[in-house]
């Protein structure tokens, strides 16, 4: 009998660093359908529907304006406080959204993963993409606000040429969220306590990131903490690109990039290991 050649082999081991990108590409339709599902399902039966994507950060920015701008009087580098907070919040929203949602990949989809196989990475990828859509919509609002305030003569925003680097910033931001998210997701399959820690940690991280205050406002220990935070470089550089305030921080950007690369590598390694057997432990 002729020997059959098999196209696929299932074994207990996973080759050390196999991204299975081809398989993921084959499932690109699924990824996009997950994106669509998230959008449709989230805002069905709400009165304002997708308007909430925009309203959420606007309301938060107004709240920050009242609390931190008016009451605490924290300076905003001469930028109109609303623009300052809103621009920071769009970035932060994207990161924290990707991070927290990705960290729920395994536990939140256990029922589905337990019944049918598809590349598990499709779920976090869809989160990154749907987050990007949301960020894009919010950016439109930011642009509208900048133009609006310009026309009204309230604020004259000077855009810096590094604006062309914004896609790079967003890219780093997304993959940092993804890397950390899938890492946490893998760990929470075993150590459930982490998910509680995460909710708290993300809140804390927001105050440790220059969103409601500029980096220049801080000093001493706080400054040290911010310099260790990989999000700092992204936020500062983003504001520099949009408002031409502060300075272009290449070192900070490189730090963010390297940090992201490491987080992503570790995240993927652990994710693919856990993916094979997590159904037995959930």
């Amino acid at each position: 009998m002729e020997k059959t050649k098999f196209r696929e082999v299932i074994t207990p081991q996973q080759s050390f660093f196999d991204l299975k990108l081809k398989e993921l590409w084959n499932y690109r339709d699924l990824i996009m359908l997950f994106v669509k599902r998230d959008f449709v399902a989230q805002y069905k039966q709400t009165l304002l529907g997708p308007l909430w994507f925009v309203l959420q950060p606007i309301l938060t920015a107004i709240m920050f304006y009242l609390i931190f701008g008016r009451i605490a009087s924290i300076p905003t580098q001469g930028i109109h406080p609303f623009l300052f907070y809103f621009s920071g919040l769009t970035l932060w929203g994207y990161f924290s959204d990707v991070f927290t949602k990705c960290s729920n990949t395994f536990v939140g989809n256990a029922a589905l993963f337990g019944k049918v196989y598809f590349p598990r990475m499709a779920v976090p990828m869809s989160i990154v993409i749907s987050g990007l859509y949301k960020w894009w919509i919010q950016s439109m609002v930011l642009i509208a606000a900048i133009i609006g305030l310009y026309v009204l003569g309230v604020e004259r925003t000077n855009v810096h040429w590094t604006l062309v680097l914004v896609p790079v910033y967003i890219f780093i931001l997304a993959f940092l969220g993804l890397g950390l998210g899938i890492l946490f997701s893998s760990l929470t399959t075993k150590y459930r306590d982490l998910s509680f820690l995460l909710t708290f940690g993300v809140q804390l991280l927001m105050y440790g990131t220059p969103i409601i205050y500029p980096l220049s406002f801080t000093s001493g220990l706080m400054r040290k903490v911010l310099e260790w935070n990989p999000l700092t470089g992204i936020l500062e550089n983003f504001r520099y690109a949009v408002f031409s305030v502060g300075s272009f921080d290449f070192g900070g950007l490189m730090y963010s990039f390297v940090f992201t690369l490491i987080a992503l590598t570790v995240g993927i390694l652990v994710f693919y290991r856990v993916e094979k057997s997590f159904m037995d432990t959930v």
């Binding site: 299932i10 207990p12 019944k115 049918v116 196989y117 094979k276």
Partner: peptide, 9 residues
């Protein structure tokens, strides 16, 4: 959905 402990398919 899950992988074997030993062996191959």
């Amino acid at each position: 959905v899950t992988s074997p402990t030993k062996g191959q398919i």
